[in-house]
Design a binder for these strands. Structure first.
Ligand code: SF4
Ligand code: SF4
Lengths: 155, 155
DNA sequence: ATATTGTGGATATAATTGATCCGCGATCGG
DNA sequence: CCGATCGCGGATCAATTATATCCACAATAT
């Protein structure tokens, strides 16, 4: 139960892109060198990000990548969902085709029928996780970092 | 990024054990049949739970498993940690040996030196996840389930 | 046109997970 | 004590996923 390395690559690449001058395209070469990963592999990750709408790409001379949105609009959650895919933290394996009774008590009213309790806990946990990830953006990292290129004028 | 099936097996097995009469040992056969999984594989999972101190086991005739603690003391978090192992949701791959500056601003005081911001977000998210999982126990599932064996006297 | 640069399919390799087998030892009833 | 029962754990294997690379192709600027 761990995020893949691809997710790490994606996050770092986006932070790097966000730290670059807007309007400039960064090539896969520079990104890959900075991250210490092969261009071949990183290009796969970047393609995912492009398909997910987080970055734009341009082929040809002086082509490369740039953020498709302000860094403040790119949440960790979005990045992870694009790279890892949209899969729940836990999926019911339908043990013995539900010949059990681990469902929430049905109150007097019949609504909320047959909500599984194991799923309920796992989904609740996942909600907490995602809420936190949605609350943090690429920009947040830049804001809190001591970036040398932005120069700390206060010395 | 998904919990393994083993975790699902473990959770369901514990719920089943918790629902059984205290003092009785449930054999691997009954558990495996209920969960619809092979005895061989489930026994591995149960061994982990035993090593983790969540269940007790007894060999020999009329042997089997029983909870080592009240179901109210067994949190989802504990189960998952035992089965999945204690590994962080995200580990730094030390891209290019940290030749970047994505660390938290060092305030006037020098404390909290060099805290990585990417890690910070991921760890924060993990804390949220675990807090939720710690807040829910096996007993919680039983309390909220409509268990037929406990008979709803008001029915 | 041509060098450049991202795209995406195919492929290869490594790592992890899921699953099974079997000999061992502990336990208990007789 | 004896032997049937039952959990333990090492070895092994298959399936799946993650990681990584290669190459033909298309798009772009000059
Ligand atoms: S308790 Fe929930 S997760 Fe488990 S088998 Fe039933 S429906 Fe599926
Ligand atoms: S930003 Fe954090 S996670 Fe990324 S390489 Fe630096 S220390 Fe590691």
């Amino acid at each position: 139960m761990q995020f893949s390395k691809s997710t790490g690559y994606a996050l770092h690449a986006l932070v790097y892109l966000a730290g670059a001058n807007p309007g400039t395209n960064l090539g896969i070469r520079e990104l890959a060198e900075f991250l210490g990963v092969s261009e071949s592999y990183l290009s796969k990750v970047m393609s995912k990000l492009r398909q997910g709408g987080l970055v734009r790409s341009a082929p040809g001379v002086s082509g490369g990548y740039e953020l498709a949105h302000p860094a403040g609009n790119i949440t960790f959650r979005a990045v992870i969902e694009i790279v890892e895919g949209r899969q729940p933290l836990y999926e019911c394996a339908r043990f013995e085709e539900h010949r059990h009774s681990l469902f929430r008590k049905q109150g007097a009213r019949g609504h909320a029928a047959r909500e599984c309790l194991v799923q309920s806990v796992m989904n609740g946990a996942e909600q907490e996780l995602q809420a936190y990830l949605r609350a943090h953006t690429i920009q947040w990292v830049l804001d809190n970092a001591r970036l040398s290129k932005h120069a700390n004028t206060r010395g």
